[in-house]
Nucleic acid binder design. Structure first.
Lengths: 215, 215
DNA sequence: CCCAAAATGTACGATCCAGTTAAGTCTGGT
DNA sequence: ACCAGACTTAACTGGATCGTACATTTTGGG
């Protein structure tokens, strides 16, 4: 197993792994059934450890939830950091960013579902997390730089607001995942098939590019 | 309660009003705190009647939730039915539909929040409601007719899929409400001010129109 | 006026479930 | 070897909360 872990000199017990195990299962469960819908006992049953350890490491249910949320945000932004947009022309960079976001959210449905749950709770935990906030400022900064390049090159129109642009990209990419259950049960799931999603992705990228382009 | 007033023996119990009262409060509460987050006792406390009546009329908590959901869908679709699109040119009709949807969802945050909650539950209750399904087919039919007119007039490009178009309109209008808490706590609430919303609304309408228009 | 059915009030049972108590075991350092 | 503290286990508690049993009132019909 993952015993090779990192610091702390060679422990046989592996608290870091235990913590990570709990967090992994908790994330999954909270994403699946929400905060009040999730049972600590069920999380405990699925981990390799016991309920007591959840309280030992995370204090209480909301502490566990808050950390799961923070870890999920961190993981997602970490993924985005992989993108190398600087070498590309602004329009290509934006196309890539949009397409990436669309794919990425699809692949990280648990994260999107946690965000939904956060919204049901009026973002009570996001509000209190400076970690999450700074992660997201990073995303806006990246977009702002991209817009500046695009304007300078005369490819993008003037006056684009990075937050408003992020809103549009997110609207598509988040809705696609967050509302899949109701949407597919009402209108069928053709749109969520591989080919449906690839069409959607293409049109989303195109819509955003047309929105920013000059003229 | 109104026991003192017995001038005529004719005062009636009003079961329909009791039901409606329960449903109104329940909708509000479920929208605010979710299915498992909502306490039946609290709903009961806020109604004019007692917990006993909730069970009398709705069976159990999930029955109450299911009926609240159904009523919310019905009310929203009823609102949309007010729109008279037939007299307008296809592009104007679409602009109006999109703008209306954007505004309407904003004004009916409770409905959007119920939909989010439904999505957290994987649409378990929407799936079982043929009432809700037929209400939504109606919305797609309206869009299909509009697309047909637009194609015939040469205003819209060929091959538009009404479900995919509905997806795009919904993505913007739903996301705007459903993710307001996290979004505004991360990026500020300028975008949710009156002027921010009106800019957003305008750009959303424009994006959809550019998407459908013949190249 | 009387009766069955519909509607409502009261009080309680049963269970679920977050969090705790208490009694340990394992670890590396000295 | 042995200690202090990190970690683990299982049983338990107490309050929250869904749902119900049973009594009572109200209503419409005969």
């Amino acid at each position: 197993m993952a015993k090779d872990a990192k610091p702390k000199s060679g422990w046989k017990q592996d608290p870091a792994a235990v913590r990570a195990d709990i967090l992994r299962i908790a994330t999954e469960m909270f994403a699946r059934t929400g905060l009040s819908g999730t049972r600590i006992d069920e999380i405990a049953a699925r981990t390799k450890t016991s309920k007591r350890m959840i309280y030992y490491y995370f204090g209480d249910k909301t502490g566990l939830y808050a950390q799961a949320l923070e870890a999920a945000y961190a993981k997602v932004r970490e993924g985005e950091r992989q993108l190398e947009l600087e070498g590309l022309a602004p329009d290509e960079a934006l196309a890539r960013l949009v397409g990436f976001t669309f794919d990425h959210h699809r692949r990280n449905a648990d994260f999107i579902r946690l965000v939904m749950i956060e919204n049901v709770h009026n973002a009570a935990y996001v509000r209190n997390s400076s970690v999450i906030k700074s992660l997201n400022e990073e995303a806006i900064a990246r977009l702002r730089a991209l817009i500046a390049r695009g304007e300078a090159d005369g490819l993008f129109r003037k006056g684009l607001d990075p937050v408003a642009l992020h809103w549009k990209i997110s609207a598509f990419s988040v809705f696609n995942v967050s509302n899949q259950p109701t949407f597919s049960s009402l209108y069928g799931d053709d749109i969520f098939s591989e080919s449906g999603q690839s069409d959607l992705r293409e049109s989303v990228v195109a819509m955003i590019l047309r929105y920013v382009e000059r003229s």
